[in-house]
Design a protein around this nucleic acid. Sequence first.
DNA 1: CAATAATAGTCCTAATTAGGACTATGTCAA
DNA 2: TTGACATAGTCCTAATTAGGACTATTATTG
Lengths: 148, 148
Amino acid sequence: MTITASNAAKQTFIPLARALARAYQAFASYDAAGYQNSDLTVSQADVLFTLGNTAGLTFTEIGDLTLITKGTLTGVVDRMSSKGLVKRLAITSDRRYTKVVLTTKGNKLFAIEFPRQIEYLKKRFDKIDDNTRQQAITILNKLVDSFD
Amino acid sequence: MTITASNAAKQTFIPLARALARAYQAFASYDAAGYQNSDLTVSQADVLFTLGNTAGLTFTEIGDLTLITKGTLTGVVDRMSSKGLVKRLAITSDRRYTKVVLTTKGNKLFAIEFPRQIEYLKKRFDKIDDNTRQQAITILNKLVDSFD
DNA sequence: CAATAATAGTCCTAATTAGGACTATGTCAA
DNA sequence: TTGACATAGTCCTAATTAGGACTATTATTG
């Protein structure tokens, strides 16, 4: 059947798309509120937490892990760098790469903010039982696959 | 058990948070690619599709439906307005409100872009069977509830 | 080896984003 | 009625966002 402007809204997948957007939005805004009293933005925290307990990562690696695109990441790392949280390290073996590593200050902040935020998120995720959580992961991965 | 920087990453809810972010991201980036050949951004399309087949909505209503916050919405509507897609209408019964309505041009664009984008999204959502789709909606709504 | 292709990161632009201050308007209770 | 409070929308700011052009570097292939 042809999709027109008047019947398009009846497509049965629309409630799913909405539910996905709403669930992500609810999570993202609760998550963001957790950083109110820190000097971190969500993206900066994302990078900080990704770099924690590593020996440094390249821009591409950080981008893959955080879903922040390269153009954005340059700016995020710049701002973290001017706060003294991270440093850029040249890689001599392949000079296209740059490694980003936490400074001592970055590590200290990680040690405080990471467990604090996890504890904060846990309050809400604890409302979800193990079974539902497992199902949710399985189903969300199916969604990811369908968009490959 | 106390959460520390070194054990925080072992929290069992973390894979769920990641899966949610990845699923939304996969959807959002596929969705965005659908507007490549149109003169619409994702937010503008969101507003256009929300206003289609209505007699106009207030900023608050549009914000609730699209999840775009008020500060952002002013700018989005401004840009759509300067493209001639929407108009602001004063509401005399309560002068705090402004109604946003599609112009003739906006309606024409809606009639083209809405079914086109729905058809485009359907290609991927059709990979998901009915049963999985229903389960996904149920589970995503549970996630939303846990963040209330 | 030399030309071509691929990869990493930066820079640039327009738009979105959240949040809060601000103005205008309306509601409600004393 | 008037003062306190709530609501709607705009304006402002700093940061993020995607995407593409650009430079530098490395890999591939003829």
